[in-house]
């Protein structure tokens, strides 16, 4: 995604076991904060199809 021109940080991966509830909450908070900081994605969106 970043390779084709999406800002870094929009995609994040994590490995969380079903037993790791605290880690899950922690990661979700971190990711949402990071994305909020980036603001809305402006390039890779399709508000309306553009054709003839």
């Amino acid at each position: 995604m970043e390779h084709m021109g999406i800002e870094p940080g929009r995609i994040q991966f994590s490995w969380i076991s079903s037993a790791e509830a605290t880690k899950f909450v922690d990661v979700v908070n971190k990711v949402t904060d990071a994305i909020k900081e980036l603001g809305p994605n402006r390039s890779f969106v399709k508000p309306e199809t553009k054709v003839a």
């Binding site: 970043e2 390779h3 084709m4 021109g5 999406i6 800002e7 870094p8 390039s43």
Partner: peptide
């Protein structure tokens, strides 16, 4: 060469 581009340049390139 592509990796060295900025995010905007990459977007425009593709």
């Amino acid at each position: 060469k592509l990796e060295a581009m900025t995010t905007e340049e990459k977007w425009a390139y593709f």
